[in-house]
Design a protein around this nucleic acid. Structure first.
Lengths: 362, 362
DNA sequence: ATCTAGGTTCGAAACGGTTCGATGATATGC
DNA sequence: GCATATCATCGAACCGTTTCGAACCTAGAT
């Protein structure tokens, strides 16, 4: 357990009685080295526990084999799943990933992006705090930049997102189909392309059904439990409470459930709840939550694919096309949604186990 | 949006009409540079958007300012919180972090450790898959290695763990205090120092109370929802079911709740449930979960502190002491625990809001 | 025996920084 | 006026790799 010495190729070369370039050739299996020398070098490497110095190699080669990732909220299960997808796909391709948490603050996001530039990561995957600050982000990017989840307003970028509009449209149609007319929508701050698209999907479905949206039906807050809880209380205590609440993100959904529990309002008998994002706990919440599931880890995987494709194109001098990938969501109906009270008797709705209803494009 | 050129110090020096070493001095605020040249250099840096190349600097300085982290399960909220603590503390000290997911497989863990060595990260934080494979890990580590959550068997290492024994002891005493005699404990595979200590805490509490532990009271499975669910079903359907279930990790706790729901067994009226690990959803689960809370992000922060301290000691040639940090857990009582049925009438237990009961050392 | 071709092996430059000793300019003391 | 001290600036070596052209060796052809 003494201080471990790290050896260099020079050391290996000396021990094996060969030149440094020969060691390099053996390590990288490049060029022609006689079986005899190969053997000697490998023995030396083994004996010394030699590992090449990635930094030095990167300096020479101009690539670090590291992918940088900046996430809006590292504790949100949604981004965690995205991260897992990224990790898996990156490892498969021999890349390491550096993870940064912007914590919803765009100045921190910018700081992280700068740090990743300093590290000369080979690509950057970004789940931005908002869709506006993103523009300055484009400047000073030395490597492919892939947006995930949320994209900047009208800008040509590489991105992987879900079809938030279609998912929201489908979900609202589903609630309307159950007989709901007074549906409340709660969302985080509207600076996110995801929030905007989800609200738009809701709007379109209501318009299709010729149902006007009243002023207090659309509520904005922060994307956290407390905010969802407070908006939930305010909605449920109002003189004309909604028969269904559609929460546009997972944290606020938890807040709504908490508010319902506190007011002892039976769900879905009196109020239905539909969430965006589906997770572990959804099956054991009370009641089991109906929710829109996003293909989280696929977002991560596709983002890495896009990044690596872009790196390869750049190496080969091919034109780098700005691809936008849009993935579908699916509606998982459990027990937090049902027909509104008034018509509960004439329309029996049951769903014992969760079933996936794929959404379709608008 | 044309391909961005990355500039070097040489470019900056040329533009500013100074030498490379002067630019270096300005960038690092080291040495004495006249105000005039400082000004010229800064202007050039600004104009070119120059950022130093971390890899090159690292090569010269022999440190990358990157901390590597290998986690057992990147999707488990427990490790996510730990990661957040690590991230926060690392950023504060100017370090980036590389995250690796071993997914519970020790051969993958070893692969990641090797990769981090190749990257010459300045320190490695490891939440190992098990307490046994860990020994080979110690070999070939070029940088401080800090264990988190789970430690290798009898080995002198740097580590940050929680007092699992004391927490489990306290929790079991609490259940015994409520009047439970037939308490089932379910845990993951027993290759984890955490599991072992938690089971030991339970054993000691039972021994103190002179209550024998029957063979089927201690159940092992995998640390996931399905396993918890199946063990839950098997326990609850047995001829002499327990009056309380103590689940030693968060995933299995979810499985137990699922089993209870499925069998329509009222909790805590018929069976109490106590979980290890406390999270967001615990407050909205049905019923709100009583659980042992671990100081998750503090684990991460202290691990970084330990690592940085170790790096500093090494730089200064001071002896690197192998410190073990043990953090306390706390019991959060919500509504999933209560007195067992038989004596429910004579001992009224209520707890409207969660309260923290600190555990004490054995 | 000499020349050439082919195949291994080697040496040195390069990547982009940091650092230290050398150099040059300026001010100070006699 | 000259030696010396001080201060700002510079040049070059170095960190650990990769890579490319040079050098070397052997064998085959003439």
């Amino acid at each position: 357990m003494t201080k471990q010495i790290t050896y260099t190729m020079r050391d290996v070369a000396r021990l094996a009685g060969v030149s440094v370039s020969t060691v390099s050739a053996v390590v990288n299996k490049k060029g022609i080295v006689s079986p005899e020398l190969t053997e000697r070098v490998q023995r030396a490497i083994e004996a010394m526990g030699f590992r090449p110095h990635a930094g030095a190699r990167g300096l020479r080669l101009g690539s670090t084999h590291i992918i940088g990732m900046v996430l809006q909220d590292i504790t949100n299960p949604f981004f965690v799943e995205v991260m897992r997808g990224v990790e898996e796909e990156a490892i498969k391709n021999g890349y390491e990933i550096i993870v940064c948490n912007s914590n919803g603050r765009s100045e921190l996001e910018q700081k992280h992006l700068n740090a990743l530039y300093t590290q000369r990561v080979d690509a950057i995957l970004l789940a931005p705090c908002d869709s506006y600050a993103a523009r300055e982000v484009l400047v000073g990017s030395h490597a492919p930049l892939v947006f995930m989840d949320c994209v900047p307003m009208r800008a040509e970028v590489l991105s992987v997102v879900t079809d938030n509009f279609a998912a929201s449209l489908e979900a609202t149609r589903y609630l309307l189909g159950l007989g709901h007319r007074r549906i409340a929508v709660i969302s985080g701050r509207g600076v996110h392309s995801t929030s905007i698209d989800r609200v738009e999907g809701f709007r379109q479905a209501m318009e299709e059904a010729h149902i006007p949206i009243l002023g207090d039906q659309l509520r904005n807050g922060e994307s956290n439990i407390e905010s969802g809880y407070e908006i939930g209380l305010s909605l449920l205590r109002s003189s004309d409470p909604p028969t269904a609440i559609f929460a546009l993100n997972n944290r606020m959904t938890l807040g709504i459930l908490k508010a319902l529990r506190e007011l002892r309002i039976p769900c879905p008998q009196q109020v239905s709840v539909l969430g965006f994002d589906d997770f572990d706990w959804a099956a054991v919440s009370d009641p089991p939550l109906s929710a829109i599931a996003q293909p989280t880890d696929e977002i991560g995987k596709r983002a890495v694919e896009l990044a690596l494709g872009s790196i390869r194109a750049e190496e080969e001098g091919a034109p780098v096309e700005k691809r936008q990938i849009v993935l579908k969501c699916s509606l998982r109906i459990r027990k937090s949604t049902g027909p509104p009270m008034k018509i509960a008797s004439r329309k029996q709705y049951r769903s014992e186990k969760s079933e996936a209803v794929p959404t379709s494009r608008p």
